[in-house]
Deep mutational scan, measured.
Amino acid sequence: LVRYRTISKIPQITLNFVDLKGDPFLASPTSDREIIAPKIKERTHNVTEKVTQVLSLGADVLPEYKLQAPRIHRWTILHYSPFKAVWDWLILLLVIYTAVFTPYSAAFLLKETEEGPPATECGYACQPLAVVDLIVDIMFIVDILINFRTTYVNANEEVVSHPGRIAVHYFKGWFLIDMVAAIPFDLLIFGSGSEELIGLLKTARLLRLVRVARKLDRYSEYGAAVLFLLMCTFALIAHWLACIWYAIGNMEQPHMDSRIGWLHNLGDQIGKPYNSSGLGGPSIKDKYVTALYFTFSSLTSVGFGNVSPNTNSEKIFSICVMLIGSLMYASIFGNVSAIIQRLYSGTARYHTQMLRVREFIRFHQIPNPLRQRLEEYFQHAWSYTNGIDMNAVLKGFPECLQADICLHLNRSLLQHCKPFRGATKGCLRALAMKFKTTHAPPGDTLVHAGDLLTALYFISRGSIEILRGDVVVAILGKNDIFGEPLNLYARPGKSNGDVRALTYCDLHKIHR
């Protein structure tokens, strides 16, 4: 019993810090008490220290592992850092350059016999395009090294910054494609005289377009951006097909006994025919423009016929181009109408809503002055909100995010209106959640004399007048207030005048 009563005193000691020596009952000389009392004092002292730490809000209350900052290894790049964003855009520009100039170089340097010394005699450094290609190869190699040090988000939505895990993730992902696209074939085969082989191998750079397509997928929600990307894709495919079309004609031209190829026909049409040795002929500019003209006309199913396939190889390629053109029509131009419709969806919704308003007016036989006010209010409210119901949009977000959005939407009023000066951010967040926005066209009466005042109004834009009878008592403008002081009276009061809008007004109100 003594032991039980001794232990039962522990909660009292913990909360009230009572010393055991003052209790005459606990001072009985028993061996059990002498053993338990020192333990009680020690526990009391420890609990006292913990309570003191909690009340003082000291940093040592938290466990040590929670006080440590997340460790980022040296030379690790955050995937959302500004440097990584700028670097990704730079790589994107280099990939676009590669997609345009690599097929052009591979096709127009394929057994090209233009006048001038061969590239091997001039030297590697004197070729501007080769120098640019070398810079692109170096940048792609540097990009691989950067990807080995860039964080990523795993399946659990955690940012991984450990170098080993980053390397394994990159090896399992895009490393092989990036490595093949970054191989400097110019340096590996330079001086061997195989410019045709170098041009063909350099087309491996186009593998990076797969990554670019995935990154550009984030802009699919913007109709104008999608339309622009589709047109660029169409032009890029036409450019690639033009390079292939020229390569076919250029390879067949020296081996044909009869002059029936499209390059021969082009030379005869523009007065620059090929001679018996295969030299001469149109310039590279004429060849490229004509090839691009043929691919565009074939892809769009126009086909004027002034550039036509004559050999079997050219006919087979033309059939493939027609098939590609039909697929592009289905996948690209078939979506253009939907994209344009999405661009004008706001206008369509406006006309639909206006039609419903006019049908309501016609069905209920609203008189002319009231009908005009109804239409003007709808037009003004639509121009202010673009038909978007803010309350319906915010309803799907958590309250903390709703408060931040409301604070942002009402920031101008909260910053410049005098009653809100000096208020804490928590108070402003709470008030912003209570605001209701209303609009009024010129001549609209917001409050009639004798109406119950259940709200306090803040003028965000425009001006109003307060009338008693036919006498203008006051004219209020931006950041002015009218209405009933909230919670100042037990019952809502009545208006002693009319409140009429002089201009288009936007008002925020808080109800009782």
Rank of each mutant, 00 (worst) to 15 (best):
Q68M: 15
L145I: 01
V132S: 03
K215D: 03
N275F: 01
H351I: 03
P163G: 09
T113P: 06
K172I: 04
I339K: 01
A106W: 05
L343R: 14
R356C: 13
E64M: 04
T233Y: 04
D178N: 01
D178E: 03
A348H: 06
Q341L: 09
M231E: 11
S297F: 01
L134C: 05
L374K: 01
G261Y: 01
D404Y: 01
V86N: 01
Y274C: 01
T290D: 01
V289E: 01
G261V: 01
G191Q: 06
Y124G: 01
A403C: 03
L355T: 10
Y80K: 03
L176R: 01
L299G: 01
V86W: 06
I91F: 01
A348S: 06
M433D: 01
A423E: 01
I339T: 03
G346E: 11
F333G: 03
Y384E: 15
L413T: 09
C417N: 07
L206T: 05
L299K: 01
P282S: 03
N306R: 01
G346Q: 11
E314C: 01
P163F: 06
S383K: 04
A291F: 01
K418Q: 06
S192V: 07
F420P: 01
L129P: 01
E196W: 04
A238R: 01
P419E: 08
V160P: 01
S283W: 01
Q127T: 03
A224H: 05
L78N: 09
C400E: 09
P273F: 01
A403V: 04
V160Q: 06
E114Q: 15
Y344N: 08
V210I: 13
I244N: 01
S313F: 04
K287R: 04
K434H: 10
E114K: 14
H416K: 08
R259G: 15
W262L: 01
H169L: 01
D137W: 01
P442K: 09
G267P: 01
I339H: 03
E157A: 14
D143K: 01
R71T: 10
V393W: 08
C417K: 05
G191Y: 03
M179R: 01
Y97I: 01
V210T: 11
S81Q: 03
E195C: 15
G261F: 01
V357M: 09
K418A: 13
V393A: 05
V159G: 01
S412W: 09
L279M: 08
F234H: 01
G249F: 03
A107F: 01
S383W: 03
A247T: 05
I138F: 08
W75D: 01
H416A: 08
I260M: 10
V180A: 13
A107L: 01
I270T: 03
T300M: 04
V357R: 01
C427M: 09
F234K: 04
T203G: 05
D133P: 01
L327I: 05
V86A: 07
W240F: 03
